[in-house]
Design a binder for these strands. Structure first.
Lengths: 353, 353
DNA sequence: TAAGGTATCCAAAGCGCTTTGGAAACAGAA
DNA sequence: TTCTGTTTCCAAAGCGCTTTGGATACCTTA
């Protein structure tokens, strides 16, 4: 079928054409007749020709690759939400002929890695994950002139950059008010680490919800940690042993929420009946039924929902757009949906005493 | 500090040396004096010089990149275990100066993508995820001469290739026998999709365990689906409503196992006391406490445990080794640990009637 | 002193592609 | 017929690196 390696040179020789013409025919330039173009394309896939990516990116200066630098947390936890975001972004890249480059590095090496990616021209742009309060990566990338999109936001009032975020504040405020309207007053917040910007905004929303209904936020109901299952479990155990256990909890992710459910189950406390739970649901694929065709019945968790996979898709689109026509920074703020499931209900009589 | 773009040419001009010498100094060749080498290295990082990756891979023919092709299932589920595997592999790549390239593509495009990666010389090797019974990717990659390591195994008796796998059969056999020795007889298997090779081996192990103790496997206790949380929930609901509900369940992943717990909790059935559960635990980071320093107390799930993150690390090492000295295929079969937690116990009297 | 080794360095030829600046061929217009 | 404009193609110069095949200087040794 095909020989060793067909490159532009051998292909053009076989066709009796110059490399220029073949290259132009394949890349859709107008200065080649339709007839030869067809001939070239036909030969190209008969000989299974694919341009060497390193050669073309050397020649063009474009890598047709975007980078994702994922910091390795101290305890080597990798954010579980990451997989779905990556899946979404990856779909977009694939359909646009881009590749995804991932570097897993310790926090301390991040800056070096971004510098490397930029000066090596390894990637045409990057997606920034998990922005901090005033994230140093943002000015860094700006100074490196590397296009980027932030998934989330950082607190730079004066600084224009592209981001895609969920309105965490309003989502948590609405959820809190929803619980209060059900009669709940002692509402716990099981939040993520507040070094993450989104966690801070979520607490703000929660507090705004409480104070809007005349309830004073209390420190003993607020928790902040890595969003893993055992965290939800342990916090709930402690809360339920405490003097005035909450009648509702607001949880920053489905993962700790499952821990909450487990802790309650051990104590015979029924979610939705005895204690209400609202979780932030990133629509992680492994927590949802895989046959998406089936008509949805009432979901288990009452949740504030926003698909992280769609976010990945959209963030990737925004980045590609920015790469292809530089300069235009654009941002999007998504509202999350409040979806009523089985884990919320009016404050129970038992708990109210 | 530094000008526009420093490349080999400008750097060597500033140093008053040839490109050859500078290149050799930086790449540790012996034919350059230690003195000039130091001078070159010092200048290189003063000017923030980094060789263009496309140029060097064009010149050397090596991409210093490994590929992971992740197939997009029909229902767009991305395997949750994937994130931790990738994290492990990514660490290894980073410390060895390799990059990780990920392509998320529909199943139907996989072959084309592998061909592309190989003929473009985009990557030096690939990791194959989730091998099927007789996975066509294996002969394909062999014919493409692209180094690869399979995470898992495929059923090619005659065919030598590198793989890294957990001994799923023995793990599930041991777990089954453990349950039988606790007095259980009606043991359900909540398995993954049997198109995946590992799921088949797990069922074999389960059946071997049963028959070794004189129990006939029964179809009604065996389930096979995508390993998501709702799957465990629904199957358990059905099982518990059935005429002869199992007194123990063996679950192929922690994710459906959480669904099992949820279904039991709803019915007031206590795991470990009324019904025993053993789950296969890939040590997913988001299900474990993030402070790994803390002395472990008894884990919640009794589990057959094997860290998928370590597997990722090891698979990456094996691949890099194979890339750097081609030809040597090597394989490893890991035994999983049976870790006793709180979800197993002797068959309860209530259930035995 | 000359011959032979060795330690340093360099010019130039690729790697496989894109793209600039024509050239050739052919058409229609003067 | 000659001139201008189009269409279609090409030769050659990069892109930034590695690497081959010397060259040059500096020591040894006979």
């Amino acid at each position: 079928m095909s020989d060793e390696s067909v490159n532009l040179k051998t292909l053009s020789e076989r066709l009796g054409l110059s490399q220029t013409t073949v290259s132009r025919a394949l890349n859709g330039f107008p200065e080649v007749s339709e007839q030869t173009r067809r001939r070239v394309i036909e030969a190209a896939d008969r000989f299974n020709y694919r341009p060497s990516s390193s050669a073309s990116s050397l020649a063009t200066g474009k890598a047709r690759t975007v980078g994702h630098v994922v910091p390795l947390a101290e305890h080597h936890m990798i954010n579980p939400h990451f997989a779905d975001f990556i899946a979404g972004a990856g779909e977009t890249y694939s359909t646009h002929g881009y590749d995804m480059l991932i570097r897993v590095v310790p926090r301390a090496d991040e800056e070096r890695v971004y510098r490397e990616l930029a000066t090596q021209k390894r990637v045409d742009g990057v997606v920034v994950h998990g922005p901090l309060g005033r994230d140093p990566r943002i000015p860094l990338l700006q100074s490196l002139q590397l296009p980027f999109v932030v998934h989330g936001r950082s607190d730079y009032a004066d600084n224009e950059y592209s981001w895609l975020d969920v309105n965490n504040r309003s989502a948590f405020r609405r959820a809190t008010e929803f619980l209060i309207d059900l009669g709940h007053e002692r509402i716990a917040l099981i939040n993520g680490l507040e070094t993450m910007n989104f966690a801070k905004r979520r607490r703000k929303g929660y507090e705004a919800g409480l104070t809007s209904r005349g309830i004073e936020p209390e420190q003993r109901y607020i928790f902040s940690q890595d969003m893993v299952e055992p965290y939800g479990y342990e916090v709930t155990c402690r809360l339920m042993e405490s003097a005035a256990p909450p009648t509702a909890v607001l949880v920053s992710s489905i993962l700790p929420a499952m821990g909450v459910v487990r802790a309650l189950a051990e104590r015979g406390i029924r979610p939705g009946t005895d204690v209400s739970i609202i979780a932030f649901d990133d629509c992680l694929s492994f927590l949802h039924a895989s046959d998406s065709e089936r008509p949805k019945d009432v979901p288990y968790f009452t949740a504030i929902r926003s698909s992280i996979r769609l976010a990945g898709r959209r963030a990737a689109q925004m980045l590609l757009q920015q790469i292809e026509q530089p300069g235009a920074t654009r941002s999007e703020l998504w509202e999350a949906d409040l979806v009523i499931g089985q884990t919320t209900g009016p404050k129970s009589q038992a708990a109210s005493q």
